[in-house]
Amino acid sequence: MSRTILYARVSTAEQTLAHQRKQAEAAGFEIDEVVADEGVSGLTTALRERPQGRRLFDMLRRGDVLVVRWVDRLGRNYADVTETIRDLMRLGVIVRTVINGLTFDGATKDPMQQAVRDALIGFMAASAQAQAEATKEAQKAGIEHAKGRDDAYLGRKPSFTREQFDAVRDGLAQGQGVTVVASATGLSRQTVYRIRDKPAEAEAALARWA
């Protein structure tokens, strides 16, 4: 009997496993089991090298559905993400994302569908790596700015948490309007606009006040 398994990678203190599961269930997934790695960098650590990542590969069977918030949960390095998704498809596992509802299924034999699927995998993996590197640079800038300074030099404290920041980015990525995202996150429209238009600055502010 096939199962639907949610894999979550929680890499910061303000990200929560419960939040990722809630997002998946809100998107219509009925989760049978959750596997999660906490405090593990997806940019530097491949899925198979993570404690729960190894367990995940051991437990997945043909026909199972692996749900992830986004492909960056599987890794943020282009080569790692693409190879991981292909490994999972070779096992007969269907990979589905919460954001944008993407499906990666190795069962299709149609060459055109295969070409479109493989191109999409590459594009998504490249986007994940680029976003990760931009986020890392923003965090680094925020931390460097904060070194040796007291709160008076940190700038205004963000009016949003890491969880709200992620929720805004997720909602906008799914094509939701600013008003809808603001209502869902409890933030003002101005704050949502600020996160949308200047994500690096918002990320840096979170890093400074971490």
Rank of each mutant, 00 (worst) to 15 (best):
E25M: 06
E33S: 15
K22V: 01
A24H: 01
A13L: 07
V40H: 15
V34A: 13
E38F: 10
I31E: 10
V40Q: 15
E33R: 14
Q20W: 02
E30M: 12
K22I: 00
E14R: 09
E30F: 08
G42I: 08
S41K: 07
I31Y: 14
V34R: 15
E33V: 11
D37A: 09
V35K: 13
L17H: 05
Q20P: 02
E30A: 14
H19F: 06
A26C: 00
L17N: 10
V34P: 14
I31R: 14
F29R: 09
V34T: 15
L17E: 11
E30W: 08
D32C: 12
V40T: 14
A26P: 01
I31L: 14
T44A: 09
V35W: 13
E33P: 08
A27H: 11
R21A: 10
S41A: 12
Q23K: 09
D37Q: 08
S41H: 09
G42C: 10
E38A: 07
V35L: 15
T16Y: 05
D32P: 12
G28L: 02
E25F: 04
L17G: 07
E14A: 10
Q20T: 03
V35P: 11
K22P: 00
V35I: 15
A24G: 05
D32S: 14
Q15W: 00
V35S: 12
G28T: 02
D37V: 13
R21D: 03
G42P: 03
R21T: 08
A13W: 03
S41C: 09
A13V: 02
A18H: 08
G28W: 00
I31W: 15
A13K: 09
E25N: 02
G42M: 06
L17K: 07
H19Y: 07
G42K: 01
G28R: 01
G39Q: 11
Q15F: 01
A27I: 01
L43D: 09
E25G: 06
A13I: 00
A18E: 12
A13N: 01
Q23M: 06
A36P: 08
E14L: 03
Q20L: 07
Q20E: 07
E30Q: 12
Q23W: 03
L43S: 13
A24F: 03
A26L: 04
L43H: 06
D32I: 11
A18N: 08
E33M: 11
K22R: 11
G28A: 06
T44G: 04
V40K: 14
E33N: 13
E38Q: 11
F29V: 12
T44S: 13
E14G: 15
L17C: 04
T44V: 07
G42T: 04
S41P: 07
D37G: 06
Q20K: 08
A13S: 09
A36F: 06
K22T: 05
E14P: 03
A24Q: 01
A13C: 01
D32L: 14
E30Y: 11
F29S: 10
F29G: 13
L17S: 02
D32M: 12
V40M: 12
V34M: 12
T44N: 10
A24S: 10
E38I: 07
Q15K: 03
Q15T: 03
A27K: 10
H19V: 00
I31S: 15
E38G: 00
A13D: 05
A18Y: 04
G42R: 00
Q20C: 04
R21W: 09
F29L: 11
V35C: 14
F29P: 12
